[in-house]
Nucleic acid binder design. Structure first.
Lengths: 245, 245
DNA sequence: AAAGCCTAAATGTCAGACATTACCGGTTTC
DNA sequence: GAAACCGGTAATGTCTGACATTTAGGCTTT
């Protein structure tokens, strides 16, 4: 691991150290599972104090590049990033991005349904019984009239994630997790009436049945209807609010 | 901001403080651009020392939730996450995920082309002169025979990003940045002959022309050819290596 | 009134110390 | 002889207090 850091740098010492260690990890100088030198040794090598090293390590831990463990054989280990961990990060980042940058509902919904439609041919080809079961579970849940709008939307998200996972491509699942889950807060702003819910559930059932029958075309048609319906509903809500306020 | 933290928690004090501040940000108790209390005051409020607070702040800074500024009017400010910053994070995370989890080239390429194909109808509808210009620039670059394989792949990535950006949906662009750029290292493992390059460039030109003509069908056909060709080339390389080693 | 200095407040860094945790080895016991 | 127990030890986690550095804004001086 290189240990050349310049004392005068706007990034700060801890920033430079973090970058040096990150480079060592991504370039493969330290492999997954391997232990980093102890904090004291790192401090010696870089010529800085231990708190400074610790700040650098915390930054890397926040990006899940390393994981720390206490005790005699403890230390900082290069962490193997799992898909699930990355899901969480992507979802929180996407949610923040959408809320902070005033992304309108139409754009978010467009992204979501566009990506989802792209998964349908693969899902129809590769769906397993497990994926079908997950979709059916959510369909049953959505039929419950006692569900709050939040619960209904959460189940909606779970249904669509099952659809995406059915495509059997971890990268697609990963990418879509952000698009699908991040706009759940936006979806929650919609209020569904009983009749609207029934219609959405019916469309979901059409999608599930089509995926079961490996009929990608039918599933795509049903998804397009969900898309159109969601956008129309959002427009209606927006107009009603504009008129009321 | 709440300041309830339990001293006994496997997450550690700094972790709990980081989470408390993050919750305050995402729940809107502290708005974008607003300044957090000073480190000393946070330390007092949470009943911990300043280094502990600093570690928590570094974790949040690593996630770009806050940005720190030195000086008299300095401090930690809630940062507005920009799309470009998020791009970088997504790309590095995706790259690490792919390299650490032994994602095979076929799955990565499938994800990439699937998502890209989904953007074509939108791109054909909304492309501006700027996007067309970006694609043409990369086409010209790719025609240069002196390009290394790395440079050729980089230009390839830039071309496809221009295509995705032409869809005019920032969320789609964001999501796809990960899929497209993260597999560039995998693409670099391929070695293109002059003839293969010419074929790929010809297909790229077909795509660009089709987008210009707003012909989504033709663009999709050409993209499918690129996809098939890339996968075939990858298979060939794999077989050759398996035979040679 | 404008230019320059100076102070204050905040982050950045350092040093040393103690607390806590968990493995590792030897010791004890059955 | 094997299993349970128990300190030693090395590492992270945290605290205290201090100094360095940076920057804004007020104050003084011209």
């Amino acid at each position: 691991m290189t240990l050349e850091i310049s004392p005068v740098n706007k990034m700060g010492l801890s920033g430079q150290i973090a970058e040096a260690i990150r480079d060592a990890i991504v370039s493969g100088q330290i492999t997954v599972g391997e232990r980093l030198p102890s904090e004291t040794e790192l401090a010696d090598r870089f010529g800085v104090s231990r708190p400074t090293v610790r700040e650098a390590l915390k930054r890397l831990a926040a990006q899940r590049l390393i994981r720390t463990q206490r005790g005699a054989t403890g230390g900082a280990f290069v962490n193997q990033i799992t898909w699930d961990e990355a899901y969480d990060d992507l979802i929180t980042t996407s949610t923040l991005l959408i809320s902070m940058n005033d992304v309108d509902f139409a754009a978010a919904a467009e992204a979501r349904f566009t990506l989802e439609r792209a998964c349908i041919p693969l899902a129809a080809k590769r769906r397993t019984e497990e994926h079908l079961q997950r979709m059916r579970t959510e369909l049953d849940a959505q039929a419950d009239a006692d569900l709050t709008d939040e619960q209904f939307c959460a189940s909606d998200v779970a249904f669509h994630r099952a659809l995406v996972d059915a495509a059997g491509n971890p990268i697609l699942s990963y990418q879509l997790a952000g698009a699908v889950e991040a706009i759940e807060p936006l979806m929650n702003m919609l209020t569904y009436t009983a009749r609207e819910r029934a219609r959405v559930v019916a469309l979901h059932r059409r999608i599930a049945d089509a995926i079961w029958a490996r009929d990608a075309t039918e599933a795509a048609v049903a998804l397009d209807e969900v898309s159109d319906y969601t956008l129309a509903l959002a427009k209606e809500v927006r107009d009603r609010r504009a008129g009321g306020g």
